[in-house]
Amino acid sequence: MNLKIVKTSLRKLVSYFRKKAAWNDLKQIPKLNREKTLYLFGSPLHGNMGDQAISIAQIDFLNYYFPELYVKEIPREYWLYFRTKILQFIKPTDFICITGGGFLGDLWMDEEEFVLDILNSFPENKIVIFPQSIFFKDQKEKARFENIANHHKHLKICLREKKSYHMVYTGLDRKEDIHLFPDMVFWMKYEKNDIDTKKILLCFRNDKEKIIDTDIAEYIKNYYKSKNMNIKEISTVISGFVPLAKRNKSFLCTIHQFQSARCVITDRLHGMLFAIISGTPVLAFDNVSGKVRGCYKWVEQLPYVFCPDADDDFKDKLSLLLDCPPSTYSKNYLKNEFDSMAGLLSEFWNLKKKERD
């Protein structure tokens, strides 16, 4: 049999079973207690562990502050398969939130279109967009986003860094519905574990968000090799499909790489965040949208985190990383911000928030 035909048949078979699994999950919606159900749109099924970590953190955050609330996840893939059915299932009084991340704007148009479709499809629902970054190159696309967001009557948008916040704040009419909160991964915490004092993690992008010069990456490699360190190049993106049920296992494999490292050098936002929440010294370079340095501002006082701006010389930070001892990240560092976010949700959705010390 022709290899191309075999591959096509296998793809169709995989698609069939994924679609069947999605429907088996979705058909439970009519049985749920509507007063205690929140619909979380956009949970990832792909291998970006940053996005997966955001989903894990969001659900843990919601369970912490609203333990009586059941979170029903609806990945984008489910929406593409069964949009009509989902529209029938969800009523105007149901609560909706859209996952956080860095995909608002025209860098990642599939995700942007998904968010806009949700806003257009549920004009009466109270919708919260969890902390996001937003970036536009095309002003027409920016104007389209602003038009759709302005026409939604019950929308709260959370941004995770000031550059995105100011962009949305200046473009939308209802300023009181625009909020600045940390990336949800700051809600997580992991202890250092099995530290290899010789292991240096390099975690660099290879996509359209990358701006770091290749010569810089080579300089860093050569510097640490000269110090007899072991360089390990990794990514926060793994290959393949990651079903909701296997998300935690996949994420734990990734975070362990950071827990066990001597230090991390990265231009990925969640490369930086995974180092921060595991107490691992990190040097982070910015990306094209500015979200890395923007999110760094939440924790710039932490002594083991370095994120030089474009005019700073990074070279002296390489030795500082080696001098940094392992640290312990505390979720209390940004607890006030997360308390405020929970208060916003409580008031907006008229839900009782569990008071925590």
Rank of each mutant, 00 (worst) to 15 (best):
161 E>P: 06
261 A>I: 01
62 L>E: 04
143 A>C: 00
228 N>C: 04
220 I>R: 09
203 C>K: 12
42 G>C: 05
108 W>S: 03
93 T>Q: 15
71 V>T: 06
128 V>T: 07
92 P>C: 05
55 S>H: 00
132 Q>V: 04
156 K>W: 03
220 I>F: 04
21 A>I: 01
107 L>N: 12
172 L>G: 04
120 N>G: 08
160 R>S: 10
116 L>S: 09
350 N>V: 02
211 I>W: 14
24 N>Q: 15
174 R>H: 08
58 Q>G: 13
105 G>D: 11
348 F>P: 10
59 I>H: 03
315 K>I: 02
201 L>C: 09
14 V>E: 11
180 L>N: 07
348 F>C: 05
87 L>M: 14
294 G>P: 05
263 C>V: 00
22 A>C: 13
45 L>I: 15
55 S>Q: 06
138 D>K: 09
292 V>H: 02
116 L>Q: 14
115 V>A: 09
146 E>P: 00
150 N>R: 06
226 S>P: 06
6 V>S: 08
8 T>E: 14
19 K>A: 14
180 L>K: 13
280 T>I: 03
264 V>R: 04
43 S>R: 01
266 T>Y: 06
277 I>W: 01
250 S>G: 06
284 A>K: 12
20 K>N: 07
49 M>H: 00
115 V>E: 12
206 N>A: 10
277 I>Y: 00
115 V>H: 05
236 T>A: 10
30 P>K: 03
299 V>G: 00
281 P>A: 02
198 K>N: 15
175 K>A: 10
169 Y>G: 07
229 M>V: 03
308 P>V: 12
25 D>M: 14
138 D>F: 10
11 R>D: 14
